[in-house]
Design a protein around this nucleic acid. Sequence first.
DNA 1: CTATGGCCCTGGTTGC
DNA 2: TGCAACCAGGGCCATA
Length: 283
Amino acid sequence: MPELPEVETTVQLLRPRVVGRRVKDAEVLWPRSVGALDPDAFRQAVVGARIARLWRRAKYIVFDLERRGRSAGVVLCHLRMTGRLMVEAARHDTGPHTRVRLQLDRGVLSFVDVRKFGRFTFHASPDDVFVKLGVEPLGDGFTKGWMRRELRARRRMLKPLLLDQSFVAGLGNIYVDEALHRTGLHPLRRSDRVPPAAADRLVDEIRATLEEAVEREGSSFDAFYRTPEGQPGSYQHQFRVYGRDGKPCRTCGRVVRKIVVAQRGTHYCTRCQPAPRGRGSAG
DNA sequence: CTATGGCCCTGGTTGC
DNA sequence: TGCAACCAGGGCCATA
């Protein structure tokens, strides 16, 4: 599932193919993919614009649009579970799951999404969407002091808290499980019961996990995530716990366990991540 | 404030 | 073998 590393990889590989390109035409093949705007309005908003910059915020891919050198809104793409972006030659068939297609002055940008959860939407300003996002885990605001304060200020289980995009923006199910294992924290542990030293380690391990995953162009363990070049990532080979339930922990050899937390499959090692006592609290 | 459960979706897997 | 039920999961929303 695309999380921060997969989105970052997509941005990096797509950038040289889209920045500076002009949108000649737009086709919306699945109206809900462009959000609240109806397909005609979406088309009007993007056709004729030039893509001035391509960047990432959390799991969003941001296309800055310009007209006559002036800012003209943004397209925000969220890949959700199965979304993909790619630039192909005009005649290339991207298949039956293509939801939105932008004809560029060189190539065609396609948004392909099997499960239709993803979005490819136009906004006058990205702030409309970004105001509710929390700190960027690879950015300057993600510090040990911040983590210590914010964990203490809440009483939530770590797993759902780290998945909450208004807290830290960019982590998903996979990298939360990986980072918690690397830190030695149980997913059910209450945030205000995390010792300061562990909060510090959590910051380092989240950063390290994400950076290593970006380095390997993300994780591909099913048919879905591929880079814009069509290549799978390789971070799945580094997974310590995700999808490894029933297999031995790579650190201690104990069998990795899978439970459900906040409707999400959650993988952890019972020895490396000792259970908090008394409903996630006392410990 | 925090937790829970439904919804959106499809394709792959499981169970009978 | 066939087919239905089930599951995965990010973000959002309503409800407890």
